[in-house]
Amino acid sequence: MAPPPPPPPNEDNSISHDSSSNDQHRPISTIVIIIAMQTEALPLVDAFQLTEDTNPLFPKGTPWVRYYGSYKALNVNIIWPGKDAVLGVDSVGTVSASLVTYAAIQALQPDLLINAGTAGGFKAKGACIGDVYVASEVAFHDRRIPIPVFDLYGVGLRRGCSTPNLVKELDFKVGKLSTGDSLDMTPQDEASILANDAVIKDMEGAAVAYVSDLLKVPVMFVKAVTDIVDGDKPTSEEFLQNLSAVTVALGKAVTQVVDYISGKSLSDL
């Protein structure tokens, strides 16, 4: 007997998770929060009263840091890629994000991933400093491969897991997220971001989405706006100016998300 044909691709060329019905209705037990910067991570470590893992589950020599503990009947893990061994700065960007996401899923087998962090926002799309968004879709804006089909692979459009009840209850904004490895925005990046119809931009989200889709773990994205990309101030200046205050807003939002998740299944979100 011939094998059944593969399912037809989604018309919008995005890729969604295919968690089984049982997974959708089983109470969420273990969550992993992927977060790029120590400044973003530490308020949540305090909020959830987590402990740093002194015997890390990750390969020897990697700078990746895990904080863990129990919070409202959830096994909560915050994974931070750590500091660059040579330069001493946070290991931001898509390469670190994808590696640490893969390692965390393999080691911890979470029911849900949350990629939390700061992002740039577009005032033309209604974003303001301090706004918190849940990303409905994520895509890359700096992987330009102008060859048929490879172009779609480069964009890598993927959906976050569906959380309509959570978004309504917590009154978060919803918008599309675009990811690239540069803090600034070139004209080519801007054109791609506009094509992605993005409201916010970051340096990790689409990489986390790629790995979560590969290993079939649902993921949601919680992003707080530190800078207005299409505003008058230089991005780097505005980012540093607002980072501390916006990190507080991010910590509050992620705590609300985890509080809401406690005792619920994916289908409840």
Rank of each mutant, 00 (worst) to 15 (best):
S262I: 08
K123M: 11
P187S: 08
D111P: 05
T163V: 15
Q106M: 10
L269E: 00
V134W: 05
C161H: 12
T247E: 00
I129L: 08
G82R: 01
Y133H: 06
S21W: 00
S162N: 14
L243C: 10
I228S: 12
P234A: 12
D189T: 08
G121C: 07
F58R: 07
Q38V: 11
P148Y: 02
A135Q: 04
K223V: 12
E204S: 14
E40N: 08
T163G: 00
P7E: 09
A209K: 03
R26P: 00
E169S: 15
V155N: 07
N242Q: 13
G61R: 03
D184H: 09
H25I: 10
V208G: 02
L214F: 05
C161R: 06
V138R: 03
S91M: 08
G130C: 07
S265N: 08
F58N: 05
L74I: 03
I129K: 05
V45T: 13
S262C: 07
L250A: 08
N115W: 03
G69A: 05
P3C: 10
L113P: 02
S178I: 07
S236G: 00
G154L: 05
G93E: 04
F221D: 13
G263C: 09
V92K: 14
S212C: 10
G117S: 07
L152I: 06
E190S: 14
K123Y: 04
A209N: 01
N10S: 11
L266P: 11
F122T: 00
G180V: 03
P81H: 04
S21V: 08
I35V: 02
L112W: 02
K173D: 03
G120N: 03
Q256S: 15
E40C: 05
D197R: 12
G175F: 00
K125C: 06
K176W: 05
L215P: 00
S91I: 01
D46F: 06
V174K: 03
A195L: 11
Y71V: 02
V248I: 15
A124E: 14
L250K: 13
T94F: 01
K233F: 00
P56D: 04
D181F: 00
A127I: 01
P9E: 07
K168H: 13
K60S: 15
V211T: 03
K72L: 11
L250D: 11
D12H: 11
A191V: 10
S162A: 06
D202R: 06
G205K: 01
T54S: 10
M1C: 12
V248L: 13
N165D: 01
D84W: 02
E40I: 04
S244K: 13
N196G: 06
A127K: 11
E11H: 11
K125S: 10
